[in-house]
Design a protein around this nucleic acid. Structure first.
Lengths: 223, 223
DNA sequence: AATTAAATTTAGACAAATCTAAAAATAAAT
DNA sequence: ATTTATTTTTAGATTTGTCTAAATTTAATT
């Protein structure tokens, strides 16, 4: 079956809200979609008719299994395009979302499977969110050394190996701790040092010796 | 100003029809758009209101200068995406058009200028049609040797240097002459021979010695 | 338990893009 | 120069997604 861009946007947004709350309600979806509750109700009926939604009036709603499959397909497209925009076209990580919102609705399946291959079957988008595979399976978090983190790929600090006081003191000075979200802005091959950016703080430089001891993972929410 | 996908499709199609006939008429546009003449009339009024069209009822119509600028922008996007699909994702040249029809409506200007750069500012799409630059200027035809023709890039035979009888006889046997449209299917590095395809004929092999004498250009219509 | 507040749905209207069927203008043919 | 045929436009209806305003259901409070 085929869906309009609007239907796809609703499905995707319901999926995202479901991640936080088992059952979704009309008002919160309306807020996310920047539309009115009455409009949401209209769409809910349509999606229910198409068997994508479990929905009884006044009772909240959630995606059916087929609905979830479709949501994951859209999320997959969105994140693959984000990866393309950041890693191939050189967009800043915070500019890719808006453009991917349009690209995700291009309908060719072969386009997506070829794009996936072209990008090297990436598992995480530039925001650190996992990219579902063609079957809708979401990759688990994967730890890697800060030195191996691709440029401008956001990641979360998950462990620090050298636990000496000097090291922790230094990291604390930079605002880096477990759970800190950061990304690499520039890699200096001369001495292996990294210019990194923690949250919205000004960028700072850390040496290769420090980076060597910091491990990160891509996904955002889990520590 | 901003346009819907539908408006953009009309504008683009009017532009293409104008290439053949100075002034376009309702029925032929309806045929191209696979819609009814009545629907075309409605859209013509809308485009006239937006100053993109010179149009008086029953009198035919053509794009204004601003309208033409917009058409060229859409054509540019379409052909850049076609180039991307064929040369980066490995699509066959005859599969790219349908997908580019969707991609061309993605609205970000920065996306297009970065894509253009990423692709190396190409001048011709995989069908041999010229890609307008950011100012709407259309590149002139460019001759090149058949040996330098990129794989699966369609081109038109524009001249043959060695005009001996044997050569012309051979080319005639293969169905190759001035104005013949062809493309390279495979390049054999072992002996430099080429597997080429002329129109819809079965593929054939020509030697490096022959190819060396054949010059082609990308654009389709001009000899 | 009755009242007030909040969330949700219905009813009816609107804009965009399409359609059919009928009317009007232009072009072609006798 | 009429008539006939073709092209184009109008008029009115339909679909999709949206809206406002009013009605209904559920939740919260006294």
């Amino acid at each position: 079956m085929n869906f309009t861009s609007t239907e796809e946007n609703y499905i995707k947004q319901i999926y995202h809200l479901q991640q936080e709350k088992e059952r979704v309600n009309t008002n919160s979806l309306a807020a996310e979609m920047k539309t009115r509750p009455a409009s949401v109700t209209d769409m809910l009926k349509k999606l229910k008719n198409k068997k994508l939604l479990q929905y009884e009036r006044y009772r909240g709603f959630k995606l059916t299994e087929p609905g979830k499959k479709i949501a994951l397909g859209i999320v997959r497209k969105h994140r693959l395009w984000e990866f393309f925009l950041a890693n191939k076209l050189g967009f800043e990580w915070d500019k890719v979302h808006v453009i991917a919102e349009e690209l995700e609705h291009v309908s060719s399946d072969e386009l997506i499977s070829r794009l996936d291959l072209f990008l090297g079957n990436p598992s995480f988008d530039p925001h650190g969110d996992p990219i579902p595979d063609r079957n809708g399976k979401i990759p688990q978090v994967k730890q890697l050394n800060l030195l191996s983190l691709p440029l401008s790929q956001q990641a979360t600090v998950s462990s620090v190996t050298n636990q000496t006081g000097e090291m922790l003191d230094m990291l604390k000075h930079y605002g880096i701790g477990l759970g800190t979200v950061l990304r690499i802005i520039k890699r200096f091959d001369f001495d292996g040092s990294l210019e990194i950016r923690v949250a919205k703080q000004p960028p700072c430089i850390i040496t290769e010796q420090v980076a060597k001891n910091v491990f990160v993972h891509y996904a955002k929410n889990t520590t």
